Simulated scan of single mutants.
Amino acid sequence: MSARNSAAAQAAVLRARARRGVWQRLLAVLGVRTGRVRRADAVAARWEHGAAGEAATARLVAALGAQGWVIRHDLRMPGSRANLDHLLVSPCGTAVVVLDSKHWHRGRTTTMVGGRVHCGTDDRQAQVDAVASYARR
């Protein structure tokens, strides 16, 4: 099963909404990008960057399927806007692994600093804590 990639879908929605309306479509045909369109494109680019990370993780874990692991991607969390990027269940069913793809800067090392996860100098612990809460649910 491949990732449905809700991040990529979100990027497409953002781009389409920014170009909705007669004037926006006309300006787009003329090659004019309004501030609204530029902002939407910037946000959409971040979603697409995340989608690429999710797709790369899906490719990496795909081989586990041949070994009996059940793999699911892009699962919506009931009662929430959040999703699980990847859920893996071991062949015997006793291990469940929740993976959240992060496409952080490849030139920066991910480390633990004072018990907190950092990517370069950026503190990313809040993202780790959020995924841990999803896994508990």
Rank of each mutant, 00 (worst) to 15 (best):
C119T: 09
R4L: 10
G115I: 06
V70E: 06
T57C: 05
H103N: 09
S6Q: 08
R33L: 09
W104T: 09
V37L: 09
W23E: 08
L84F: 13
R20Y: 14
M112T: 05
R76L: 13
W47N: 08
A18L: 07
G93R: 08
V96W: 00
V97H: 00
S80V: 14
A12G: 12
W23L: 15
S80D: 15
A52Q: 03
L84S: 00
R124A: 05
A58V: 00
V43M: 04
L14E: 09
V117C: 11
L88R: 01
L75I: 08
M77P: 01
R116H: 13
R20H: 15
H118Q: 08
Q10V: 01
V98Q: 04
M112S: 04
H118T: 02
H73N: 07
A11H: 10
G93P: 09
H118G: 02
G21A: 14
D100L: 02
G68I: 14
E54Y: 00
L60D: 07
R124Y: 11
E54D: 02
L60P: 00
V43A: 04
A44K: 05
R59Y: 04
V98N: 05
L60M: 04
V32S: 05
A126F: 10
D41M: 06
W23S: 11
V61N: 01
R15Q: 11
V43D: 04
L75S: 03
L75K: 05
R19K: 15
S133T: 12
V89I: 14
P91C: 09
R20D: 15
R38P: 12
A9D: 10
A55T: 07
R136M: 10
V113S: 08
N83Q: 08
V32K: 09
A11S: 13
S80P: 09
A63G: 06
A95L: 14
R59S: 03
A18C: 02
L30F: 04
V61W: 12
G50P: 07
A63K: 08
A9E: 11
G31K: 01
A28I: 02
G68W: 14
Q127I: 05
D129C: 02
L75C: 01
N5Y: 08
R38L: 12
G107K: 08
N5R: 06
V89A: 03
Q67I: 09
V131S: 15
D85F: 02
H49D: 06
A12C: 01
G79M: 14
R81L: 11
S6L: 05
A8Q: 07
V61G: 02
W104Q: 01
A12M: 09
A63R: 11
P78M: 08
L64C: 03
T121Y: 13
D122A: 12
G53H: 03
A51L: 00
H86V: 10
L88P: 02
H103A: 02
Q125F: 14
H118R: 11
D74H: 04
S90K: 10
L27M: 10
R116P: 07
G65R: 15
A51W: 04
A95V: 15
